[in-house]
Every structure is written in C-alpha cells, then in structure tokens.
C-alpha cells in the first residue's frame, strides 16, 4: 500500500511538472520545471528497476539538457516570437492531446499483466555475451547494430548542427567563447568539479560490464564536466576544422565498425566469439565513450561562430 502511495505521488508530481512546463507564458519557468521533471523521471526509472536508464536520464537531464535549453534561452532572449496561429488552435491542441493521451491510456490498462518479455532469453544467453550486465549485453552484443547505428546518428546530428553555421563562422570555435573572473567562484568550481567528474565518469564506464553503467552514461558525465570547464572559461573549445577533433569523433563508430567486420571471420557481421567477447566489448566501450563524450559536448555547444571583435 505504501509502495503504491509512493508511486502515485511520484507520478502526480511528474504530471504536474509536465503540465507546468507546457502551460503558462513564462519560458524560463517552463525550462526550470523541465529540469525538475528530468530529476523525477530518474526516480521513476529506479522504481521500475531500470537503473541503467535512470543513470542515463540523470546524467543527460541534470548535466546536458538544462545547459542546452538555458543556453538557448539566454541567446534567444525576446527573439523567440510566437507564430501567428488560427483561432481555436488551443482547443484543437487540447482535444488532440487529451484524445491521444486517453487512447494510449486505454491501450496501457488493457495490457496483459503477465507480459513475457525477453528477460529469460537474455539471461539464458548472458554467459555467451562476455559481460555480466544484461543491459550492456543487449546494447553491445545482442543488439550491437542499434548502438553502432546510434553512434553514427550522433555524428550525423553533429554534422547537421555544424551545417547551420553562418558563412563567417565556419572554421571557428563552436558556440560562444566564454570568459569568467580569474579566481572567481565559477572558475574555482570549473577547476574543482572535473577532477571528481573524471573519476565518476570512468568508474561508470568500467562498472557497465558487470552492473549498471556503460559508455553512454559515463560519456555523458564526462561531457558534462567538459562543458563546465568551457563555461568557466578555463578551456576554449577546439576549432571545428582541427584534425585531431575529426579523428576523435569518428574513432568510436570506426573502431566499432572495425571490430564488427572482424566478426566476419568468426561467422557473421557483429558476432563476437565468446572467448574474445569481453575484451572486444570493453575496448569498444572505452573508445565509444571518448567519441560519445566529445560529440555530446560539441552538440550542446552548437555551431561554430565568429568570435566577437
């Protein structure tokens, strides 16, 4: 009974945050509610035993989404005007939202409570995957092509972001060049936190082979602390034409693809023989972490732009 009370309270607060984020005129308030919403979603994931997802959500929600949206808000200012909408648009939105929400709700409550799922199949093959965490086994072995394609999607998104650079901005540093008072609060914070963040990020990647964690979660933590050092004006983001940067970005998907092709000798594309599965997965995870972290940093910073004179 208490457990249900807890779950229902979490869900009510989640829905209130979402409601506050989509209503009202104040955009800043909506963003702050969305940040709190991300926190509550992590708690919800823990309640349905999805610790790996909770880690990813916590790292992305707390570390990156807030920075991305608040940065966009700061740069847009009052430029973000409302498009002219036909009369009754609110009513149509209300009917569509309520209708689709109700339809999905109806579908959810009608699901059979004993859904089999794939847990048994995954656990039966876990031995062969080379790792002890079933989620990592699915991500990097059983459904490795998902993760391979995802790392490529991240690169494509980055190319998309870079391609909206202004004509004079190309070849410059991505995002704004930040500065802060020397020895001030922001700079001290930017020096202090990354040391801890590096340890925690590396720990989460390493822990991923046996428990909750992995390349995405660890990479996000590393990306977040890297963004902090840039926001604090301690490090300038590298120019987008830098050669090492390009190599580092394609290294993750590249190594993954290479190992996948080697699998052809063992039978098929993306097949890891059991004997080498563990070292192969750990090697892919480490390289992938570096590429993911770098790609996420550049995605959040935005397109390159000319430094103000």
């Amino acid at each position: 009974m208490i457990a249900s009370g807890f779950d229902i309270t979490v869900c009510v607060l989640l829905c209130l945050c979402a409601l506050a984020a989509v209503t009202g005129r104040d955009t800043f308030r909506a963003i702050v509610f969305f940040i709190v919403y991300g926190l509550l979603i992590s708690v919800a994931w823990l309640r349905i035993d999805a610790i790996d997802v909770a880690l990813a959500e916590a790292a992305i929600g707390a570390g990156l989404t807030g920075v991305l949206l608040l940065g966009a808000f700061g740069q847009m200012g009052s430029a973000d005007t409302m498009a002219r909408e036909p009369r009754g648009a609110v009513l149509i939105a209300l009917v569509a939202g309520a209708g689709i929400g109700a339809a999905v709700l109806f579908a959810v409550q009608g699901l059979p409570p004993e859904g089999a799922g794939l847990t048994a199949e995954v656990l039966a093959q876990l031995e062969a995957s080379g790792v002890g965490n079933p989620v990592t086994a699915v991500l990097l072995n059983f459904r490795g092509y998902d993760t391979l394609l995802e790392s490529i999607v991240l690169l494509v998104a980055l190319i998309g972001v870079w391609s909206v650079a202004s004509e004079t901005g190309w070849g410059e540093r991505p995002g704004i060049v930040h500065h802060a008072r020397a020895g001030g609060t922001l700079q001290s914070f930017g020096r202090f936190l990354p040391a801890i963040g590096l340890v925690i990020g590396a720990y989460i990647v390493w822990a991923g082979s046996s428990g909750p964690g992995g390349a995405f979660q660890g990479g996000t933590v590393l990306a977040a602390v890297a963004i902090l050092t840039i926001l604090a004006g301690l490090v300038d983001a590298p120019r987008v034409t830098t050669r090492w940067l390009r190599w580092a970005l394609v290294m993750g998907p590249g190594v993954f693809l290479g190992v996948a092709l080697l699998g052809l000798f063992g039978g098929a594309f993306l097949v890891f023989p059991q004997a080498v599965a563990y070292p192969a997965i750990v090697a892919i995870e480490i390289v992938l972490t570096a590429s993911i972290a770098l790609t996420l940093v550049l995605l959040v910073l935005g397109p390159p732009r000319e430094a103000p004179q």
């Binding site: 880690l55 916590a58 920075v67 608040l70 700061g74 922001l186 914070f189 963004i227 926001l231």
Partner: peptide, 22 residues
C-alpha cells in the same frame, strides 16, 4: 542505485552555472 545519486550530486549544480551564464 547509489550511482544515480552520485551522478545527480555531481551534475546538479550545472544547471545553476548555465543559469548564471544565461
């Protein structure tokens, strides 16, 4: 699950930094 708390504690202040920047 404590790892999730660790990540939240590490990164919670980032939103405040972004706010100050904005």
């Amino acid at each position: 699950m404590l790892d999730v708390g660790l990540v939240l504690a590490l990164l919670a202040a980032l939103a405040a930094v972004a706010f100050v920047k904005a």
